[in-house]
Amino acid sequence: MKSIIDDAKLLIFDLDGTLYEDTDHFDYYCRLLQKRVTDEKKQAFWDTYESMKKGTHPVAIGKVYDIKNDASVTVDPMTLQVTKVTSFDGIEWSEDRVKAEFSGELVYDFERLIAIGDGWWLPYATAMHFGLKQADTWECYNATKEYMVTDQFQLSKTPGLKQALYRLKDKKKVVLLTNSEIEDVKRLLHELELNGLFHALYTESEKPLKTKGKLKTILNEYGVQPHEAVSIGDNFINEIAPALLMGLKAVYIQPNSIEVDHENLHIVPTLANAL
Rank of each mutant, 00 (worst) to 15 (best):
I4Q: 07
L15W: 08
T18Y: 08
Y20F: 13
E21G: 02
E21M: 06
Y29D: 03
L33Y: 02
Q34P: 01
D39L: 13
Q43H: 11
E50V: 15
K53Y: 12
D66Q: 00
I67E: 09
T74I: 13
V75M: 03
V75T: 07
Q81T: 10
Q81R: 11
Q81K: 15
K84R: 14
G90I: 12
G90W: 11
G104A: 10
D109F: 04
G117L: 02
A125Q: 03
T126H: 06
L132P: 00
D136R: 05
C140W: 04
C140L: 08
N142M: 15
A143W: 09
E146Q: 12
Y147D: 02
D151S: 08
G160W: 14
L161Q: 02
K162L: 10
Q163R: 13
R167P: 01
D170N: 13
K172H: 07
V174Q: 03
L176S: 01
N179M: 04
E183W: 11
E183D: 12
L192C: 04
E193G: 04
L197C: 03
L197I: 09
H199N: 10
L201F: 13
L201T: 12
Y202N: 03
E206I: 06
P208E: 05
T211H: 04
K214E: 10
I218Y: 03
N220V: 08
E228M: 07
S231Y: 07
G233I: 05
D234T: 10
N238D: 15
A241K: 00
A241Y: 02
A243N: 05
G247L: 06
V251T: 04
N256W: 15
I258C: 11
E259G: 03
D261W: 13
E263M: 11
E263R: 15
N264H: 14
P269T: 11
